[in-house]
């Protein structure tokens, strides 16, 4: 497998985690691609327009990349903070539609603002890494950090509050959980992660345009989570890896590729309504691992 595909798969996983965070407290937000696009534009504009970020020639310094990711994440987070209050009062399908509208508004702005390069977008974004392998290692570290934070969340008060809201919002509010604040934190965290991912992706793809954040992407990233399972962070990570790779792996079938991709999206939820990673399968996996370890201990004693 080539490093470029692996990098795209890792980026897919990060976006899937961004969709997973609001879902973890029961909020179906499809805004991730919008924030992803915003983060990408921040990186693209800074690294092609500001000397301090641009570096020399075609390469740009690594600290500049990190700074762009922080700034991209911050801008996405600020937008989420500004609109989150009123938008998160909506529930279910209404929230989903409102976030689709947000993605479309951002797309139209990205297409028409005087400094975003119109339909062609921004070209020649400098590369902090000489090879795709560098991106893969860097993104792997970022993904590991994101997964670790999600795992930490399970044990934290905030994570438990989010789970309580997902199971029953009214009951959660009645035991003293500040539901609007918790939902807003999840929404902003999702936006920050998408913005950071966008800033990284803009460098990797070398150019950035308004197509980065579209309605299609909204549903594809949601499919990552639905496929992997929305109960545990491992689900979206696996879903993002698998579904990003799928269209590329299907390339040999040529024109039938996207038809088969559609069939997978259509059939997946029918056969795995809970996604691939469920609590049951995780327990099963844990039991299997324990069994394996015991066998490992016993092995030296066997004749």
């Amino acid at each position: 497998m080539d490093a470029a595909l692996l990098e795209q798969m890792l980026l897919g996983s990060l976006l899937a985690l961004s969709v997973y965070l609001p879902l973890r407290c029961g909020q179906l937000s499809l805004a991730t691609p919008g924030f992803y696009a915003v983060g990408g534009y921040v990186a693209a504009l800074l690294s092609t327009g500001v000397a301090a970020f641009a570096g020399s020639g075609a390469t740009s310094p690594l600290p500049a990349l990190v700074a762009e990711m922080v700034l991209g994440g911050m801008l996405a987070g600020l937008i989420a903070l500004a609109i989150g209050g009123p938008v998160l009062r909506l529930r279910g399908i209404y929230l989903a539609i409102a976030t689709i509208a947000l993605v479309e508004i951002l797309r139209v702005l990205n297409l028409n603002l005087p400094f975003t390069g119109g339909a062609m977008g921004i070209f020649g974004i400098p590369q902090p890494f000489a090879h795709a392998g560098g991106y893969v290692l860097f993104t792997l570290a970022l993904l590991a950090l994101a997964c670790w934070l999600c795992q930490r969340l399970e044990a934290m008060r905030l994570g438990r509050a989010m789970a309580a809201i997902r199971d029953d919002e009214l009951a959660a509010a009645s035991v003293g959980i500040d539901t609007p604040r918790t939902k807003l934190i999840a929404f902003v965290a999702s936006a920050v992660l998408a913005g950071i991912t966008g800033a990284l992706a803009a460098h990797f793809f070398n150019s950035w345009n308004a197509r980065a954040g579209s309605f299609d992407a909204s549903i594809t990233t949601l499919a990552f989570v639905v496929f992997g399972g929305s109960r545990f962070w491992l689900g979206p990570v696996l879903g993002g890896l698998a579904l990003t790779a799928l269209p590329e792996l299907l390339r040999p079938v040529g024109d039938l590729r996207l038809i088969l991709f559609g069939a997978v999206i259509l059939l997946g939820p029918l056969f795995f309504p809970q996604g691939l990673v469920t609590a049951e399968r995780l327990r099963w996996l844990a039991a299997l691992l324990r069994l394996g370890r015991k066998r490992g201990h016993q092995a030296p004693q066997a004749p």
Binding site: G92, I219, A223, V226, D255, I259, L266, G268, P273
Partner: peptide
Amino acid sequence: LRRRRADPLLALITSLGAGVILVN
């Protein structure tokens, strides 16, 4: 999905899958 009493929101994904198939 209805027969299995699955989460109705899954229909967002399955119907988009059907749309992707039709368009392609």
